[in-house]
Amino acid sequence: MKRADTLVRRSSYLNVVEAHPEWLGDPFIDEAEYLRDVNETAWRWEYLGEVTGTGGNVFTNIRDERLSLGRIRNFERTRNGVDWGWFPDPWRFVRCAWEPGARRLLIFEEHSANRKTPHETGQMVVDFLTYADEPGEDTYFHNELVWCDDTPDGKQQMAVYRRDFGIRIRPARKARMRKLSY
């Protein structure tokens, strides 16, 4: 409940677009309008600042479905990522694929842990990247690039992963690196 003397001022990019579209630029405006067309609720939240739900969901357009191994093997754009967490935030490892034509992110593998050291999670990453290419074949370590959050804890973790496990790991900076941080 707001106090009687509280001043609320509402504004959005729409207040600027008509008078000074050059301030934002065409890519920004195009992206905003695209989101407005495909997901108005997300557009209202991201670009207008409206409260559009309980706040508990990051995404509302998630579908839970089984992906065949054949489909996973044929992904062209895959990424592996680690988000360092200790407690209460979990450590996460994900394997994803991006389908740009459909603007679809497919997370086909996800693992989580709490209160694990970099050495313990490094072994977990090695285990997750050790698999057979085809059913019935021998498993082996796939030396795939893994992206990790670029925090002090993440940097410590990356050093252990490289030194002790030979994992190819790089920082995924959070700012202006959309392709790397998806």
Rank of each mutant, 00 (worst) to 15 (best):
K2W: 11
R3S: 12
A4K: 14
D5Y: 14
D5I: 14
T6I: 05
R10F: 09
S12G: 03
S12Y: 04
Y13G: 02
N15M: 01
N15K: 08
E18Y: 14
A19V: 11
H20T: 03
P21N: 03
G25S: 07
G25K: 06
P27D: 09
P27G: 07
F28T: 07
F28S: 03
I29L: 13
D30H: 11
E31Q: 14
Y34M: 13
L35W: 02
L35F: 01
R36K: 15
V38Y: 05
E40R: 15
E40S: 08
T41Q: 11
W43N: 01
W45P: 00
Y47G: 00
L48A: 02
E50P: 00
E50R: 05
E50K: 04
V51R: 11
T52I: 12
T52F: 03
G53K: 02
G55D: 02
G55N: 00
G56N: 08
V58D: 04
V58P: 00
N61T: 12
R63F: 05
D64A: 12
R66T: 09
R66K: 10
S68W: 02
L69S: 11
N74S: 13
F75L: 11
F75V: 02
E76N: 10
E76H: 06
E76M: 10
T78S: 01
T78K: 08
R79A: 10
V82R: 04
V82W: 01
D83A: 09
W84D: 03
G85I: 07
W86F: 14
P88T: 10
P88Q: 10
P88M: 01
P88W: 00
W91M: 15
R92P: 00
R92V: 15
F93E: 00
V94T: 14
R95G: 00
A97L: 05
A97M: 01
A97D: 00
W98G: 02
W98P: 01
W98N: 01
G101F: 00
A102K: 15
R103A: 09
R103T: 07
R104M: 11
R104I: 06
L106G: 00
L106F: 08
I107Y: 00
I107T: 08
I107Q: 04
I107E: 04
E109H: 14
E109V: 01
E109A: 14
H111Q: 13
N114P: 00
N114C: 07
R115N: 13
G122S: 04
Q123F: 01
T130F: 02
D133T: 09
T139Y: 03
Y140T: 10
F141N: 08
H142Q: 08
N143Y: 06
W147N: 04
D149N: 05
D149C: 04
T151S: 15
T151C: 10
T151F: 12
T151G: 08
P152L: 09
D153P: 08
Q156N: 14
Q157M: 13
A159N: 09
R163H: 09
G166Q: 05
I167D: 05
R168C: 03
I169T: 04
I169E: 03
A172M: 10
R176Y: 12
R178N: 09
K179Y: 11
Y182F: 12
